[in-house]
């Protein structure tokens, strides 16, 4: 890893965040990609056969949906901290927040196609944070899952 010593521009911040998340083996296994426009972050879950939970109706696995939303919460929280300059991006040992609890509502069947999710940080304290996540597939306004969770923020200097 050759992290830029002082990431200052928005592009630098995005690059560091993407590297931080895409270096996590589980994020790579799931195939989750991070897209950032301005300060708005969207996680994308490209469809793969291995994500199927019910082969008869070809629905996404409920655990895949939960995991995708949880990854989005972690990335969204970290991005929130980056945007508020609470995170030193030159620190090489950055880690993602830890989940305390996570509750997922399954609103519609997950279809065998790409999914998208965005996180909204409702409270970000020094130690604890609360996050809501919304996920959709074809239509932004037709959510197929939503979640709320509480997180322990990584130790910061």
């Amino acid at each position: 890893m050759n992290a830029p010593s002082q990431p200052e521009t928005a592009t630098d911040k995005q690059a560091v965040l993407k590297r931080l998340t895409e270096n996590v083996p589980y994020v790579r296994y799931m195939g989750v990609q991070v897209e950032i426009k301005g300060d708005e972050l969207t996680c994308v879950l490209p469809f793969e056969e291995k994500l199927i939970g019910n082969p008869l109706i070809r629905a996404l696995h409920g655990g895949v949906t939960a995991a995708f939303l949880e990854i989005t919460a972690h990335v969204g929280l970290t991005w929130h901290a980056v945007c508020n300059d609470q995170l030193d991006l030159s620190e090489t040992k950055l880690s993602l927040p830890k989940t305390i609890d996570f509750s997922v509502d399954y609103l519609r069947t997950g279809l065998p196609r790409d999914a998208y999710a965005r996180a909204r940080v409702t409270r970000a304290g020094r130690r604890y944070a609360s996050v809501n996540v919304e996920a959709w597939q074809d239509t932004r306004s037709r959510l197929f899952a939503q979640a709320t969770g509480h997180f322990l923020m990584p130790n910061r200097t």
Binding site: N23, V24, P25, Y26, V27, R28, Y29, M30, G53, H61, G62, G63, V64, A66, A67, F68, E70, I71, K93, S95, L96, K98, T99, F102, V104
Partner: peptide
Amino acid sequence: DERLIGDVETGVLAGGAVSALMDTCCG
């Protein structure tokens, strides 16, 4: 499974992998 690591420093599994196991078992 190393593919499921959520924290590279410690090798601890990602929460999402635990969710998948929980959902499968509950189902």
